[in-house]
Amino acid sequence: MHYTLHQLQIFLKITQTKSITKAAQELHLTQPAVSIQLKNLQDQFEIPLTEVIGRQLYVTDFGAEIAIAAEKILSEVYAINYKTLAYKSQLSGRLKLSVVSTGKYVIPYFLSDFLKQHKGIELVLDVTNKARVIESLEKNEVDFSLVSVLPEKLIVESIELMQNKLYLVGAADETLPSKSYTHEILQELPIIYREQGSGTRYTIERYISTHNLNVQKKMELTSNEAVKQAVIAGLGYSVMPLIGIKNELLNGQLCIIPVKGLPLRSVWNMIWLKNKSFSPVAAAFLLHLQKEKARIINEKFSWFEQFVSKDNI
């Protein structure tokens, strides 16, 4: 047999995502490239690794066994690389994080200096919705997770990073007659939602429920960027985190609609399972956050702190 580590890596990702398309996206490869590597690996076995029923891809029992073996092989390869670096007295290993989708505007700045200082560290970063983030933490698949809403049924420890604020926003050219509103304005506007499982969706639905509002859901989209573009295009309004709309506010594509009771406030927290045994890399990263978070916020997010400190926008 002449299978390659690259083929094993691709096949393992396919078994995890149950989709060639999703595997390609997560590996930053084209779908045809992933399909070709799957076929090349399959050609070396007489027993099917996967099967397609309807339009759904399934991993066979044999494929599941190969995936387990592939994960062990890849883990050993990573271990060889890390041991080589450790022998040179370099901090090395994998740092595994899951981050809610709007957290992608936050987490790079808390990682940048740490990864530059420790070039032997491999970052595994999964940016997804809140439900998947909590699932990955619960299964102990990651070292840390970044969330703006703490899980209710999971015992975790946390470190606060920075505040998160959500405002009602619309396209800048969608003018409204009044300069300020009560929460009833949400009943009069077509509201664009994030998908179920999103932390932003959870926060706004809790607000709507608290005020017994009858809100018109215009559409539901699966990413913050998709919501943002829909709002800019004038398809509706949305309650969005300030952290993700800085450029659009500054260049005049979006505007904040002042509503009494908004912004909705939460805090970005880095969380981990209580009593988790940290690897040297994870322990070093936590220490980095504790020591450097104030400096990082001051250097990278001063615009945010100044912006949200205003009583009226």
Rank of each mutant, 00 (worst) to 15 (best):
I204N: 10
Q44A: 03
F278G: 08
A283I: 03
M219V: 05
V267C: 08
R265T: 10
K179Q: 08
S309K: 10
S89K: 10
S98M: 01
I155L: 14
K246A: 00
A283K: 11
F285D: 01
A230T: 07
E188H: 08
K153I: 08
L176R: 10
V149I: 15
D143E: 05
S101N: 06
Y181D: 09
N40I: 00
E305S: 14
K276P: 14
T175G: 02
Y167A: 02
A233L: 11
Y237K: 10
K217E: 12
Y193N: 10
L176T: 04
S198W: 04
D126T: 07
T182G: 14
E225M: 02
E220I: 06
I20R: 10
N298W: 13
G103F: 00
L111A: 04
Q253T: 05
K96L: 03
F304H: 14
R206A: 15
Q253G: 06
G261W: 12
Y82L: 00
S145G: 09
I73S: 04
Y58D: 02
L8C: 04
A70E: 01
E51H: 11
L41R: 01
L189E: 03
F278T: 04
L154H: 13
T175Y: 01
L125E: 11
I192G: 07
E205K: 06
F278Y: 03
L57P: 03
Q306K: 11
E46L: 12
A283H: 06
Q42S: 06
L176V: 02
I107M: 01
E184Q: 08
S302P: 10
L74G: 07
L12K: 05
A33C: 02
Y202L: 08
E65M: 11
K179F: 04
K116C: 13
E138G: 13
P108T: 05
H118D: 12
G120V: 03
S19A: 05
F304N: 12
K130D: 13
S136L: 13
T4M: 04
I80Q: 09
E141H: 15
K293T: 06
R132T: 09
E220W: 03
Q290Y: 08
K310H: 14
F301E: 08
A79M: 01
S89G: 01
D61V: 09
N81G: 12
R55G: 09
L125P: 07
E135C: 12
G199P: 07
T4P: 02
K291M: 15
E299F: 07
T17Q: 15
V77K: 13
H6E: 11
K276N: 14
V227E: 05
F304E: 13
L150S: 10
V59E: 08
L254C: 12
